[in-house]
């Protein structure tokens, strides 16, 4: 991204094509060139609009992450029946040896 945000003003970095491409990679979206152009324009306008939140005076305001005032919602440690394996694998795009088959992984060894 091009620069650091400055939260105390409505100023914010624009999202250019390169930023969109980076975010799309992070989000596993193989966007096309045409989409990059279109999204850059549209998201720029959206970002202008949503950056209005930075105008709010929120000193000493606690963020709301949950709309319900609940804590400590827990379940007892009791095992309950799992799904039948046939049902588990029935929806899979590919299965082999009772497992989900996935394309080769180019990542770290786990």
């Amino acid at each position: 991204m091009s620069s650091e945000p400055t939260p105390d003003t409505a100023a914010h970095p624009a999202l250019d094509r390169q930023d969109i491409a980076h975010l799309a990679r992070l989000a596993r979206l193989a966007v096309t060139d045409e989409e990059l152009d279109r999204f850059a324009g549209q998201l720029g306008a959206v970002l202008d609009a949503v950056a209005q939140v930075q105008r709010a005076d929120v000193a000493d305001v606690v963020p709301t992450t949950h709309a319900v005032p609940l804590t400590n919602v827990l379940r007892a440690d009791v095992a309950t029946p799992s799904l039948p394996r046939d049902a588990v694998l029935a929806g899979a795009p590919a299965a082999e040896d009772d497992r989900f088959r996935v394309p080769r992984i180019l990542g770290e060894e786990a």
Binding site: R75, A79, T80, P81, S82, R85, V88, D98
Partner: peptide, 21 residues
């Protein structure tokens, strides 16, 4: 006895994908 966020059993060495929901 059960998983962190669901009731599936945690038995080691069970047949693949039999302890899932």
């Amino acid at each position: 006895e059960s998983k962190m966020f669901c009731g599936c059993a945690t038995t080691f060495g069970a047949e693949p994908n039999t302890q899932t929901c």
